[in-house]
Simulated assay, not measured.
Amino acid sequence: MNYTLHQLQIFLKITETNSITKAAEELHLTQPAVSIQLKNFQDQFEIPLTEVVGRQLYVTDFGKEISIIAQRIINEVQEIQNKTLAFKGELTGRLTLSVVSTGKYIIPYFLSDFLKSNPGVELSLDVTNKVKVLKSLEKNEVDFSLVSILPENFSIYNEELMDNKLFLIANKDFKITKKLYNPEFLNELNIIYRENGSGTRWKIERFFETHNLKINKKLELTSNEAVKQAVLAGLGVSIMPLIGLKNELLNNDLQIIPLKGLPLKTNWNLIWHKQKSLSPVAKAYLDFIKEKKIQIIENKFKWYEKY
C-alpha cells in the first residue's frame, strides 16, 4: 500500500458527491486529475471501490468501508496539525456556518480577517436556502447560521450584523416616468419571484398583502442570482436585496424604480441555538464579530449606505 493523503481526500470527495465531475469542481481540480488519482488509489486494492452503472458512478460496499477509514485517517492528520498549532498558542479547530443564499454577498467580509488572524481554523461554509439553513441549525450541524429574517419557532441567540434593504429593480431599458410610483403600479409589470421558503419571498409577499396586491404576471426562480440574470435579460422586474447588485448598479446595467413603501428592510443576523455549547473557535469568532462588525461595515460597505 502506497496511497497518499491527497488520494484519500479525493476519494472521500468522490464518495460524498458520487461524481468525478462534481468532486473535481469542489476540489478545484480538473476532471482528468481526479480520475487519475482515483485510478491510482483503486489499483492498490484487489476489490473495486467504485463502479459505473449506465453513466452513474456508485461507491461499492467495500468502497464505503474504505471511505470510513479514510475519514478517520484525515481526521487524525488534522488533529496532529491542530495539536502542533495549539502548543504554539494558536487557535485551532473548525468553524461551521450555514448561510442563506443572499448572505454569500456579505459573510466573506465578516470572515476574512478572522481567518487570516487564525490560520489554524478550518472553515466549513454552506450556502443554501432558508429551509436547509434552519434544518442544519435545528440538527446542531453548525455553529452559526446567517439569516435575514429571524425564525419564530426556534430558541436562539442572535447577533445583528447589518441592514438588508430590498428595492424594486429593473434593467437599464426600463423607462421611469414618475418620481415615485404607487404599489398598484406592480400590477402592470411582470414580477420575478424567489421560490417559496425564501426569506426574500416571505418579505415581499407581506408587502403585497399590506397593499392588497394580487400579482398575476409572475415568474418564479430558485436563486437571487437567477432572478438578477432574468431582470438583466428583460424578463421582468423584481424586489431584490440591494447587497447583491453592487456591480450592476455601478455599471448602470440595473436601476432602482422608486416605489412608495420601499425599500423593505430586514436585518442580517448571525444566529445560534440557545442550547448550543460553543467551541473555543466559535466563541472566538463571536467575540471577533462583536468587536469588529462596525469597522467591517464602514470599510467594506460604504457604497451600500448611499442607497
Rank of each mutant, 00 (worst) to 15 (best):
L5V: 05
H6Q: 15
L8P: 00
L8S: 00
L12S: 03
T15P: 12
E16F: 14
N18A: 15
N18Y: 14
E26H: 09
L27V: 04
T30S: 04
P32C: 03
P32V: 02
P32A: 03
I36W: 09
Q37K: 12
L38P: 01
K39C: 06
F41L: 15
E51Y: 10
E51R: 12
T60N: 15
D61C: 10
I66V: 15
I66C: 09
S67E: 12
I69M: 15
I73E: 02
I73V: 08
I74R: 01
V77H: 06
E79A: 12
I80Y: 10
N82G: 03
K83I: 11
A86D: 09
K88C: 07
E90Q: 14
V99I: 11
K104W: 12
I106A: 10
P108E: 06
L111V: 01
S112L: 07
D113G: 09
K116D: 11
N118G: 06
N118Q: 06
E122W: 06
K130E: 12
N140E: 07
S145C: 08
L146I: 05
V147K: 02
I149G: 03
F154E: 08
N158E: 11
L161D: 04
M162K: 13
I169C: 00
N171A: 01
D173P: 09
F174V: 05
T177D: 09
K178G: 08
P183I: 03
P183V: 02
L186P: 06
N190P: 09
N190Y: 10
I192V: 00
G199E: 15
R201Y: 14
K203C: 13
E209K: 14
H211Y: 11
H211F: 07
L213A: 03
I215F: 00
N216I: 07
N216H: 11
K217F: 06
E220V: 10
N224V: 12
E225M: 11
L232K: 10
L232C: 04
V237D: 05
S238N: 04
I239S: 04
I239V: 08
P241T: 11
L242Y: 05
G244K: 02
N247G: 11
L250G: 08
D253R: 09
I257D: 07
K260E: 08
G261K: 04
N267D: 12
Q275S: 11
L278I: 02
L278D: 01
S279V: 05
K283E: 10
F288R: 07
E298L: 08
E298K: 15
N299W: 13
N299M: 13
K300H: 13
F301A: 09
Y304T: 09
Y307Q: 02
